[in-house]
Amino acid sequence: MKQPGKGISILVMTFFLSTVIYFMTMHSHMGILYYPWQYFRSVAPPYWEQFANTVSGNFHVAWIMCCTVMAWIVETIWERFPFKLIKTDWLRRVTAFFGIIAMAWAMLFFLYFAQELTWGPAIRGTRLINAPDWRWLHVGEMAVFFLVPAIFITFYCGNWPRRFSLPVNVLIRTAITIAAAILLYIVYYKTSHDFLGTQKGFMHESQFPMIPTIWLINIWLVHHWFMDNWPAWKMIPKTADEIVQDHAAEKAKLAEIRWSPSLGWGMGVGAVCGVVVYFITLNILPWAYKSIIIK
């Protein structure tokens, strides 16, 4: 299909799918806003009630935000790794779609668990910091903190580092992003009440860090996409030769990742290390959170 038909078709299809997703995720939430509950117009109580321990649609806000962040992370600091290792187009696309959702759910569960480890299990019916609905929403807010450094690394640091193999580069960037996100989270909650007019602490009803973080990201997007990072950077369009060289380098980078016994040993050791890192993190988190003293 040619443009503009192609673009309009994509737009219409996106709108259609968004509507379907809205009905699946938020319609029940809206339906029980009414008194009495709109039993016949919406699924009431919502189908996620038992799983998420709340009737609030914040549960969906959480995983959808995680999906957004994960999609951006894959697109930026992961350079579409590992999905771009799959050569078959349709398989790569399908795997990327569901893979990103799977990783987003892993993020969702972990960030919820992190709060449970810090503040204790959520208690349904309580308010704010102890309530499941607030915890889910906070998952979404925490997720956006990871997006800020990821985008910064890509837009303003040229996706540093690039000197190692692709998986190692990705791992280093991910580690930097996690560290920077934690730092940003601490700085935000320690200082936001001084310049955003929010209340001190994590849990005020109007404490909504998604707003300033997404706002900042939007500015960066405009700066990067429409201003080519000017005035800090000056755009020099690549020559055709340079573009060809880039494509060749990309192919070589992918070709470099193929099975070998050393790779296998590495994966095994890495997998064990990953599990160890995960469980060490579980033990460090409560202590780390407690050390964030907001005065």
């Binding site: 972990f110 692709l166 990742i257 590495g266 890495g270 290390c273 599990v275 995960y278």
Partner: peptide, 22 residues
């Protein structure tokens, strides 16, 4: 190659742990 594999292993198993256990 070992470090390539290790990086993939760390990322994969951490994500798996997060998803399955958390």
């Amino acid at each position: 190659d070992f470090f390539k594999g290790a990086a993939m292993g760390v990322l994969g198993s951490t994500a798996l742990g997060m998803g399955l256990y958390s």
